[in-house]
């Protein structure tokens, strides 16, 4: 069987479809570490953690933020079912900056209960991932 040359990407959240495209390559934030997918990948079902993903179509690389979910990988097709996801250009930078600052402040005063600390830590991870996705995409536009 000839290897497929492209990957059909279906990227959805419960709220809406994020992307629907033919791509050459992509990378996902797996629960056990980031992994890349090229056409012809072995069938895989992976849980995703909070982090960044990107996909490349020709010379264009698109970045997006993912907050948990899972992905189904087939040789010619990838379905991403994320809990929450945002394309780099849709990220609200100010909100993410504010969230990061808030989390930092709370972490620097470790008076809160453990459960709160854990939630703050997760909020921090989200904010950092959002900012990093947004920055990567902006760097690209400056070139």
């Amino acid at each position: 069987m000839a290897l497929p040359t492209h990957i059909r990407l279906e990227f959805v959240t419960p709220e809406r479809a994020i992307a629907h495209d033919e791509v050459d390559e992509l990378q996902l934030p797996g629960e056990e570490g980031a992994f890349g997918v090229l056409p012809g990948h072995a069938p895989l079902l992976a849980a995703l953690r909070t982090g960044e993903m990107w996909y490349r179509k020709g010379g264009d690389v698109h970045y997006a933020f993912i907050d948990g979910g899972f992905a189904e990988v087939l040789p010619d097709r990838v379905s991403i079912m994320a809990q929450v996801a945002e394309r780099a250009e849709d990220i609200d930078l100010q909100r993410a900056e504010a969230a990061k600052l808030r989390a930092e402040n709370r972490l620097s005063r470790p008076t809160a209960a453990d459960a709160d600390a854990e939630r703050t830590r997760i909020a921090m991870l989200r904010a950092i991932a959002r900012l990093s996705v947004a920055q990567r995409s902006r760097q690209r536009h400056h070139h």
Partner: peptide, 11 residues
Amino acid sequence: EYLFEPSPERI
């Protein structure tokens, strides 16, 4: 036949 990461139960 899928590979599961981490495990089918977790997914």
